[in-house]
Design a protein around this nucleic acid. Structure first.
Lengths: 150, 150
DNA sequence: CGAACAAGACAAGCTACTTGACCACTATGG
DNA sequence: CCATAGTGGTCAAGTAGCTTGTCTTGTTCG
């Protein structure tokens, strides 16, 4: 019989990570990013250009909700909206230089935190954790999405 | 160098867990519980009685926010508020039978999900994950709190 | 082509919080 | 004791981040 504690532990660990990341981002001038923005960044950093509807689908919100969020990110200088090359209704959203800098800061911080974990549980131990998580996430399929919960 | 993927993987795995839990709770007649309620339950199931101010502190919201949440949980039959034994200003909040049943359902589901993970990564592998997480959470101290992010 | 459909904007509404003001009770220090 | 500061809770109003609803413009498909 297992303890049943692992989901709670994962949530606590993740919470601690995002707490630290948020603090470090604020120090680097990215104080105005909210949890929901993270998933937009994550998507845009992989696709290099998405429409509002696509972003809405990945965020799990309505297209209006996504549009509002994008408008906010645009005025804050994290994303830019350009006319879509082939569809004149659509606007292609992409990260600005500032947006990319923020993404880089998050990635760097996550890496730094992981390095700290190596000190705690050893490189082998952490590699075991990562491998296990990949299997678990893979098996969960579409349920395991990276949604705004930071 | 580590991948930097582990925090994201933890978030995805946890998201998948809570997605499933929420679905199973709804099937068992607990469709009206929201993420924020979870932490109230978690606290009350360990203290067997807390004040609204204590609950607010653990949730990370204002006392008014906590009070509103508790009023909602009371009308839905998950908690009861009784006069505090020693402080006539205060009210002692505790879980009702229905509240305990909901907590039990979540715990059972987390256990079941973990058992499923044993199939995926082996009992040893999962024990390694749990041990590592306990060390990581322990080292994070006060940052690693179980807050409403489901 | 025309009819159904899709992307986005504009407006209004809702929900889970917040801030602010207040009362009842408790604790503390002359 | 008793005045004063502090704490637990409530009531009321405001706000942020979504929602649903409606519309216009542009696209796709038979």
């Amino acid at each position: 019989m297992t303890s049943g504690d692992i989901p709670g532990l994962m949530a606590m660990a993740f919470h601690a990570v995002m707490d630290t990341v948020h603090e470090r981002l604020a120090e680097q001038g990215f104080a105005d990013v909210r949890p929901a923005h993270g998933f937009v960044f994550q998507l845009l950093s992989h696709t290099r250009g998405s429409t509002a509807v696509e972003i809405a689908a990945h965020l799990g919100v309505t297209k209006q909700g996504a549009t509002q969020l994008l408008a906010e990110l645009e005025t804050r200088g994290y994303v830019q909206r350009m006319p879509h090359p082939t569809d004149r209704r659509a606007r292609l959203v992409s990260l600005t230089e500032r947006g990319w800098a923020c993404v880089a800061a998050v990635v760097a911080e996550w890496r730094a935190i992981e390095e700290g974990w190596v000190e705690l549980v050893g490189r082998e131990g952490l590699e075991g954790v990562e491998a296990a998580l990949r299997v678990i996430v893979g098996a969960a399929g579409g349920r395991a999405v990276l949604r705004p919960l930071w």
